Every structure is written in structure tokens, then in C-alpha cells.
Computed example of a mutant assay.
Amino acid sequence: MQYRMKTHPLSDDRLNDLLNRIETGSLATMNEDGTPYNTPVHFVYINSSIYVHGLPKGQKIDNIIRNSKVGFTAYDMQALLLDENGKPCDTNTKYESAIATGNAALVTDIEEKRKVLQNIVAKYTPQLAHITLPDNMVKGTAVIRIIVEELTGKYYE
């Protein structure tokens, strides 16, 4: 286990806050040749699952269909903590981070997709959350559910 995971783990409340507050994450999938593919994504955290959305075709979709195992990271760098004596090697970072592993699958149920997409709208454009999403947009948007198997978080301040 990493040193800071032992000394600075995020509490469940802080971990939930981070995943509900932070705007971007990174979704790691596996390419057919075994190399990792890391994609920046918008996401929502609902009932211990992470959801992302996007185009219904592409490399991350192909990778998930072939291999459902994924990794996910969310990170909030809040400030640089400069050494009072000006030593660059003693500079640190104030941050919070979350790392999840799990299994990803495309959501096919239209009502679940609609609920997730409404949550995404509410998170990123709350002023538009009252607008009903058109059926063709819900049907035409890929929604990926990551069932989290392991979730850890750490911080430094």
C-alpha cells in the first residue's frame, strides 16, 4: 500500500464529496493489443456506480465491449505547497484523489439512460436541468456504467 494511503486516506464522506464535486475524470480501458487507453471524461457518481456518456461508437466503447475491466481516476489539485526555504524538491501539492476499479457496461435501459443523462445535465449545466431530454438524444447517446469493485481516496494538505 502506498504510504499516503496509510497516512492520508479520504473518509467515505470526503470521497463521496470529491466524486460529486469534481468535474472531470479519466477512464482507463484496454486496447485489443493490450496497451492502456486513457480517456478524459465527464461523469456522475450515483449509488456507488460511476457513469460516463459519449458517442455510441469509438475506441473506449470497443474496448469495453471486448474487456469490461476498467480503471477510473478523479483528481483535484488545490494548491502548490512551496517549501519555506525555497527548495524545489520539498515542494508538495494540496490535493484529493480517487481511484476506482471495476467492470463497465453499456446501459441499454432507456429510463436508466435518461436518469443518468439528467444527472449529468444537472451537474454540469444546472440552469438547464428542468428541460426534458428528447428521446432521440437519449437513445443516441452512449451511457457507460462502471460497477465499482474497489474505490480508494487520499489527500494531502
Rank of each mutant, 00 (worst) to 15 (best):
R4W: 06
R4Y: 11
M5A: 14
M5P: 06
M5G: 07
K6M: 07
T7P: 04
H8C: 10
L10R: 09
S11T: 12
S11H: 07
D12L: 03
D12A: 10
R14Q: 11
N16S: 13
D17N: 08
D17V: 02
L19V: 03
I22K: 07
I22C: 09
E23F: 13
T24L: 14
T24N: 15
T24I: 15
T24F: 13
T24W: 15
S26C: 09
S26T: 08
L27N: 00
T29F: 00
M30Y: 07
M30G: 05
M30L: 10
E32I: 07
G34T: 09
G34S: 09
T35P: 03
T35I: 12
T35F: 14
Y37N: 11
N38I: 06
P40A: 11
V41F: 09
H42D: 13
F43A: 05
Y45A: 01
S48R: 12
S49E: 09
Y51I: 02
Y51F: 02
V52T: 01
H53P: 04
H53I: 05
L55S: 14
L55D: 12
L55Y: 10
L55G: 11
L55H: 14
P56R: 13
K57R: 11
K60P: 09
K60C: 06
K60A: 02
I61G: 12
I61D: 08
D62V: 05
N63Q: 05
N63G: 01
N63F: 00
I64V: 10
I64N: 03
I64R: 05
I65W: 15
I65K: 11
I65Q: 15
S68K: 05
K69C: 02
F72E: 04
T73Q: 05
A74N: 01
D76M: 09
D76T: 03
Q78M: 15
Q78E: 10
Q78H: 09
A79C: 15
A79P: 14
L80C: 15
L80V: 14
L80A: 15
L80D: 11
L81F: 11
L81Y: 04
L82D: 04
L82I: 09
E84C: 05
N85E: 12
K87F: 15
P88A: 15
P88E: 01
D90Y: 01
T91V: 04
N92I: 10
N92R: 15
N92Y: 06
T93P: 11
K94A: 12
Y95R: 06
E96G: 10
S97T: 09
A98L: 01
I99R: 04
I99K: 06
A100H: 04
T101C: 07
A104S: 07
A105C: 10
V107L: 10
D109E: 13
I110N: 14
E112T: 11
K113P: 02
K113N: 07
R114I: 03
R114A: 04
V116Q: 00
L117T: 06
I120S: 12
I120R: 07
I120T: 03
V121Q: 00
V121L: 04
A122N: 09
T125E: 15
Q127L: 13
L128E: 12
L128D: 14
I131E: 15
T132W: 07
G140N: 14
A142N: 09
I144D: 00
R145A: 13
I146G: 01
I146H: 01
I147E: 12
E149C: 06
E149D: 05
E149K: 08
E149H: 01
L151F: 13
Y156F: 12
